[in-house]
Amino acid sequence: MSNFSPDFFDSIYASTPPWEIDGPQPAISALLDEHPPTAPVLDAGCGSGDHAIAIARRGLRVLGIDVVEAAIAQARDKARALPPDAGDLLEFQVADALRPTLLERRFGAVVDSGFFHLFEQDQRDRLAEEFAAVLIPGGRLYLLEFAVEFPLPTTPRKVTDDELRARFSTERGWRILALRPAQFQSRIAPVPAVAACIERLPADHA
C-alpha cells in the first residue's frame, strides 16, 4: 500500500509542491520527442497539469486526472490562461489515477511522471494492468520514477530497470522502446530516476 494519503497531498498543494517546476519534466519531454504519442493522451496523477498542458501544446487532445481537488483546480486555472488552440484540447478531472479503467475511455498514450513510484509492488502490479487495459494496441506508456529510496515515511519508493523489464515484458504484452537513467527535477535538487517509453502490443503479438 501507499504511505501517501489524500490528506497529505491536500496539505502539499496548499503551497507549491517540490515536484512542481513550472513546466514538464525534461526527461518526459525527451521521451515524447523521441517516441511521439498518439492522441488521446491520459496524464495519470497530473498534479497541477504541466505535462498535460505541454502535450496539448503539441496539438494532442489530453485528459489529466488526479484525486487531489486542489491540484485539479490549479490545473484548470492554468488551462484557462492558454490560447484556444491548446486550451480546447485540454480536460482536467478529479479521478483516481490508480483506476483509470473507471473512466471507461481508451487512450493512445499514458504519461506517468512520479505516480507509479508512490506504491508498493502489489499496487504497481494492478496499476500496470490498469494501464494495459486503457491503452489501445500500439499505445505508449511514458514513465519517470525515482531510482532511489529515502528513509522517510512519505517519500517515493525506488523503481529499478529490472523491475520495469519484468513487469512490462513481451510475455505480458509490452515492448520497451526506451529505458534509461534520468533525473527527476525538483525545487530542492534533482533526484536520480528511471525513464521509460513502453508500447502496448496487439493481443495477437505472440
Rank of each mutant, 00 (worst) to 15 (best):
P17R: 12
F184K: 03
A189D: 08
P153T: 12
L118M: 06
V194F: 03
A75C: 03
V111P: 03
I21Q: 13
N3K: 12
M1C: 08
L98V: 06
G23T: 06
R200A: 11
K158E: 10
Q121G: 03
Q93C: 14
F92Q: 07
P100G: 12
R167I: 04
A56E: 11
D22V: 06
V191D: 03
A27N: 02
P36T: 00
W19M: 12
A56W: 13
P37G: 02
F107C: 08
V194G: 00
L164N: 01
R172C: 00
L144M: 08
D112S: 04
L118W: 01
S15C: 10
F131S: 01
I72T: 08
P153E: 14
A75S: 02
R61G: 14
A182P: 10
V134I: 14
E171Q: 08
L177H: 01
G64R: 07
A195H: 01
L98K: 05
L141Y: 12
A70F: 02
R200K: 15
T154K: 13
I28H: 06
G138W: 11
F107G: 03
R61H: 15
G47L: 09
E34K: 12
F146K: 02
E129R: 12
V191K: 05
S169L: 02
F4A: 03
G173N: 06
P181E: 13
I176Q: 04
G59M: 10
H117A: 08
F4T: 05
D33E: 15
A203C: 05
A132D: 10
S29G: 12
K78T: 05
R99F: 14
H205D: 03
T38M: 09
I136W: 11
G87C: 11
P26N: 10
R172G: 00
V110I: 14
Y13D: 02
I12T: 07
P190T: 01
P151Q: 12
Q185S: 06
D161K: 08
L60I: 13
S5T: 15
D125K: 08
D10C: 04
L102P: 08
V68D: 07
P40M: 03
Q74E: 10
A56N: 09
N3D: 13
P37T: 01
K158H: 06
V194I: 11
L63C: 09
L201G: 04
V148P: 07
R167A: 03
I72D: 02
I136G: 01
P18F: 15
L152V: 14
A178P: 00
M1G: 14
L63A: 11
G173R: 02
A195K: 00
L31C: 07
R105S: 08
D161H: 10
I55V: 15
Q74T: 05
R165V: 00
S169E: 00
P26R: 11
